[in-house]
Simulated assay, not measured.
Amino acid sequence: MSNPNPVTPEAIRRAPKVLLHDHLDGGLRPRTVIELADASGYVDLPTTDEAELGQWFTEAANAGTLERYLETFAHTCGVMQSEEALVRVASECAQDLADDGVVYAEVRYAPELFTEKGLSLDTVIQAVEAGFREGEKATGGKIRIGTLLCAMRQNARSAEIAEMAVRYRDHGVVGFDIAGPEAGFPPTRNLDAFEYLRQQNAHFTIHAGESFGLPSIWEALQHCGAERLGHGVRIVDDIKVDPDGTAHLGRLASYVRDRRIPLEMCPSSNIQTGAAPSIAEHPIGLLTKLRFRVTVNTDNRLMSGCSVSSEMAALVETFGYGWADLRWFTVNAMKSAFIGFDERLDLINNVIKPGYAALIDEAGRHPSEG
């Protein structure tokens, strides 16, 4: 019997989804960028036409390198230097994600990037949290947002930001991350921050295995103790596939799969930064087949012109995934979130599984959620 609910882009948008890797300063609405620039006197935008600006961000991000991709953030961060701007951007972020069917999201940002006009780190964090609460309320409680505080790996403030993550963990902050260029800035440069977080029983993920290879992943896990891998695309370099399709996992790949270490995969972004050549050739296909703990994410919705729904739709079109696969990705993400076990279980049992139950028949059960 055919499924009466085909996996269409609009149906995917209505399905409950979970997002673990999304940057606040990479998800602004083009109109908001223009209006905030006008209000703050920021004059460096390449255009003030809404459609043209959205296209400019996507084209600039398509340069093919992580470094060029990161340059686009000069404009979004440039207009996010006031409390009012931070509240607005965070509120709109929550509303946009909820409109895309996201029921839980962890949105990350680097507080140090928004202090150019004198805001303190505390003020930045409080403004963003106020914006998220405002956005959650505006959606009628359809979404919950947890915040990850990022330290920029090329700077020397990771210990300070880690302390802020602990200070605000009862006020919306659920974890810590390091972001920025991987090459030349290994995660071990921030060992003091990660040791502090472990001592404080705090959660953290690490951007690793995107533009840099297996050593970045190995350091993030074995030296720093990362609970999740931001991207983790290059773990595929430790997997050999025979012509007949038989896969042989190396020691590191086996460790990542055996330990169920979540991979925060962002297909469109990975193509833009040169970490993968195309959706069809993206490691997510093989890693999903081998049952790694794969999750589907956006990274930067403005730069990639994407949403969680569009990322899932691209995977459906490319790999032929069905509702059971999308549910698997979603449950994987919810299991891997940095909120408490009871909260995760509640969302899985009372929101995610019922949401997919209407879209999947019993014969379509995925063989191995986890």
Rank of each mutant, 00 (worst) to 15 (best):
M1H: 03
N3E: 07
P4R: 03
P4V: 10
E10Y: 05
I12A: 04
P16E: 07
V18I: 14
L19H: 14
R29L: 14
P30T: 05
T32D: 10
T32W: 10
I34T: 05
S40R: 01
V43F: 06
V43L: 12
A51Y: 06
Q55T: 11
T58G: 00
A60T: 08
A63F: 13
L66W: 00
L66Q: 02
L66K: 01
L70Q: 11
C77E: 14
G78E: 09
S82T: 15
V102T: 09
A105D: 06
A105W: 07
P111H: 02
P111E: 03
K117W: 12
L119P: 01
S120C: 04
T123H: 08
E129N: 10
G131W: 09
G135P: 00
K137T: 12
T139D: 06
G140F: 05
K142F: 08
I143D: 02
L148R: 05
L149N: 02
A151D: 03
A156P: 01
A159Q: 12
I161D: 08
E163G: 05
R167M: 05
L191G: 02
A193D: 05
Q200R: 15
F204L: 07
I206A: 11
G213N: 08
G213S: 13
W218M: 10
Q222W: 12
G225K: 01
E227G: 13
R228F: 04
R234Y: 01
D238L: 04
I239V: 11
D242R: 15
D242T: 11
Y255A: 06
V256I: 13
D258K: 13
R260Q: 14
P262M: 08
S268G: 13
S269W: 05
I271Q: 04
L286F: 07
L287Q: 07
L287I: 09
L290M: 04
G305E: 03
V308A: 13
M312L: 15
A314E: 10
A314Q: 13
V316Y: 09
E317G: 03
G320R: 08
G320D: 04
R327L: 15
F338G: 03
R344C: 10
L347C: 13
I348P: 02
N349W: 09
N349V: 11
N350A: 04
K353L: 15
Y356W: 02
Y356S: 00
Y356F: 15
G364L: 10
G364K: 04
S368P: 00
E369D: 14
